[in-house]
Amino acid sequence: MLKDCRCGQCKRLLARVGEYTELQIKCSRCGTLNHVKATSLERSPLSDKEVAHAATSQLA
């Protein structure tokens, strides 16, 4: 699901973003540099598979 990312100064819509860990974007209207970090990091199913694969390859 996409969420609106708006400028902290003038509230202009900067982007619609999905999952992210960190985003830095400059507003074209007022020039404010907006820096947003994710509130929590959830592991993706892909990274869980990579960890499991690495663990099994070390055992062999």
Results as ranks from 00 to 15, higher is better:
Lys3Val: 08
Cys7Ala: 09
Cys30Asp: 15
Glu50Leu: 15
Thr21Lys: 12
Glu22His: 15
Leu46Gln: 14
Ala55His: 08
Glu19Trp: 07
Asn34Lys: 00
Leu59Pro: 02
Gly18Met: 06
Gly18Leu: 06
Ala15Asp: 01
Val51Thr: 09
Arg6Trp: 03
Tyr20Glu: 02
His35Asp: 11
Ala55Asp: 10
Asn34Cys: 03
Ser47Asn: 05
Arg16Leu: 07
Leu23Gly: 02
His35Arg: 10
Lys37Gly: 01
Leu33Trp: 06
Leu14Met: 08
Arg16Asp: 02
Arg43Ala: 08
Glu42Met: 04
Arg6Asn: 13
Leu2His: 03
Ser28His: 12
Pro45Ser: 05
Ser28Asn: 13
Ala55Ile: 15
Ser40Lys: 12
Cys27Pro: 07
Ser28Lys: 12
Leu59Cys: 05
Val51Pro: 02
His35Gly: 02
Ala54Phe: 04
Lys49Tyr: 11
Thr32Cys: 10
Gln24Asp: 13
Ser28Pro: 06
Val51Leu: 14
Ser40Pro: 01
Lys3His: 12
Lys11Pro: 00
Lys37Leu: 06
Thr39Met: 00
Glu42Ile: 14
Leu33Gln: 15
Val36Ile: 13
Ala60Asp: 07
Cys5Ala: 14
Thr56His: 04
Thr32Asn: 13
Ala38Met: 01
Ala60Thr: 07
Thr56Asn: 05
Gln58Thr: 12
Arg43Gly: 00
Arg6Tyr: 04
Ala15Leu: 06
Ser28Cys: 09
Leu14Ile: 04
Arg16Gly: 02
Lys49Ala: 15
Ala54Gly: 00
Ala54Glu: 10
Ser44Glu: 04
Arg12His: 08
Cys30Ala: 09
Arg29Thr: 15
His35Val: 14
Tyr20Ile: 01
Ser57Asp: 08
Cys7Ile: 04
Thr39Phe: 00
Leu59Ile: 12
Glu50Trp: 06
Arg12Cys: 05
Pro45Phe: 01
Pro45Val: 00
Leu33Gly: 01
Gln58Asn: 13
Ala55Trp: 07
Ala52His: 00
Asp48Leu: 11
Asp4His: 11
Ser40Val: 05
Lys11Val: 04
Asn34Gly: 00
Val51Asn: 01
Gly18Asp: 12
Lys49Gln: 15
Leu46Cys: 10
Leu13Arg: 09
